Amino acid sequence: MFLSPLPERNGGIEINNFHQFKMMFFAQLKLTLREKQAWFWGIFFPVILMVIFMLIFSGGSDEEFQTEVAVVEPNPNPASDRMLGQISELPVFEVKSGKPVPRDKAEEWVKEQEVDAAIILPESPEASSVFLVVNKENEQGAAAQAVYGILDKFVQQANLSAAGAAPTFDLKFESITSGNNDLSYSDFLLTGMIALSIAQGGMFGMVDLVEMRRKGLIKRLRMTPASMGLFGLSDMVMRLLFSIVQIVLLSLIGVLFFGASLYINPISLIIVFLIGALSFNALGYFFSAFSKTTEAYMGVANIVSFVMMFLSGVFFPVETMPEWLQPISNILPLTYFADGLRASMVYETSAANAALWAGIGILVIWGAITFILGSLLYKSKAIAADR
């Protein structure tokens, strides 16, 4: 699409397309490598960002939930003894000291936040109340709400047993995945951070076009025999190389330091990576087309990046978001790029998978539309400048 079958002349010397592309590529690579900011934002910043979020979110996320409680048995009786035995057998409850304690001691532990809650058992076989005591400051906390929910289900079960009605069904928990391998939170976060880093590299990487247009360099380049298509292609290839460095470096850090497990399908990964990186480059190209200053470009890129960072399933699955937000997430390109990287890097999904290609199709649509709009804007500005 970018290549012209005819050689171009510069001062009577023929310059074929490959030689012209090679000179442009190495010129842009040298300029980029000389820029310390390019190294920081392209390589070191994604690493720092991923390490921070992995430290915050991945620690202990794969462990089973367990909460420490105190149990008070004011007046031991057959009903309270039975409930105490059943509570002690629940794996989610760790009974502090391993036995009932006086109520004042239990309440002191709750106040000092040494336990998440205190469970007060019935005083007599005729008593119908089981009390749950929590710290008021943590009343709406996840641990207190979890203890309340578990204890509520436990009391309902005890009511059925007391009435002599044995339940017909019991609830057992299982988890399944759509792929061959289980997805831990470290795997989920690592692939999400890789997708975010590559996306930000594309969206922020075209800022140099704004500066070149402002200084009139693009106009001067149009007056030379140089091909603008080859100029754009060389810039994209250079940025793809940066993205390859990002994906390799971030993967090594995730696997070696945070215990992430990767099961890569090379063909699927190459397809998703190339389409995703090019799509976000096109998005950055579109931003540069209507931004008159570097500040304006960075403002737009920051807003879009911030929205996609938290609504595209980078840190948490889209399904856990409020229902009214999910339709927004389902149209954002980063959602499908992150899903595609997880499918190809963790689930080892084949390139023949229909769901994978559905996400790739949405990335292609985003890339094509933004590239066409950006090209039209550049063309209209060029025509206006020539008049």
Rank of each mutant, 00 (worst) to 15 (best):
T224Q: 05
S197W: 10
E112K: 15
P78L: 13
N265M: 09
L132Q: 14
A355F: 06
Q156F: 08
D386A: 15
K381C: 12
R222F: 03
I264A: 12
A166Y: 03
P327D: 00
Y336G: 01
F173I: 13
N353W: 00
F154W: 03
P102E: 13
L31M: 09
G149D: 08
Q157M: 13
L3A: 10
E123H: 09
E348G: 03
G276K: 01
I303E: 05
K111I: 15
N135C: 12
F337M: 13
N330M: 00
E137F: 13
A296F: 06
I15V: 15
E94A: 15
L209E: 07
N180S: 12
L240G: 06
P74Q: 01
G205F: 08
I331H: 09
Q145M: 14
F40P: 05
E63Q: 14
L189D: 05
K111C: 11
I13F: 03
G85F: 02
F173S: 10
L49H: 02
G205P: 04
V255A: 15
D235C: 02
F65N: 12
L33T: 10
G216P: 07
L217W: 00
R9I: 09
G202T: 08
F44Q: 03
S344L: 08
S227A: 04
P46W: 03
V95I: 15
I270D: 05
S288F: 07
L311F: 09
F25W: 06
E63H: 13
P322R: 01
P266V: 07
L132G: 14
S268V: 03
F57N: 01
G361P: 06
F40N: 02
I369C: 12
E14C: 07
L3F: 11
A199R: 01
L196I: 13
Q200I: 04
F40Y: 11
A384Q: 04
S58D: 08
S291G: 11
G284C: 09
S251V: 07
T168N: 06
L269T: 10
L377W: 06
G299L: 01
F169S: 04
P74T: 13
V210I: 10
V147M: 07
F290C: 09
N10T: 03
V130Y: 09
Q86Y: 13
E64S: 15
T191E: 05
S128R: 14
Q86D: 15
G202E: 07
V318K: 04
V207S: 07
V71N: 02
F337G: 06
V133P: 05
L325K: 00
W357N: 11
N17V: 10
G149W: 08
S268Y: 01
A355P: 00
A117K: 09
K99C: 11
I120L: 15
L171M: 15
V364N: 06
S234H: 09
L209Y: 08
A162P: 04
L278A: 13
Y336A: 08
G340P: 01
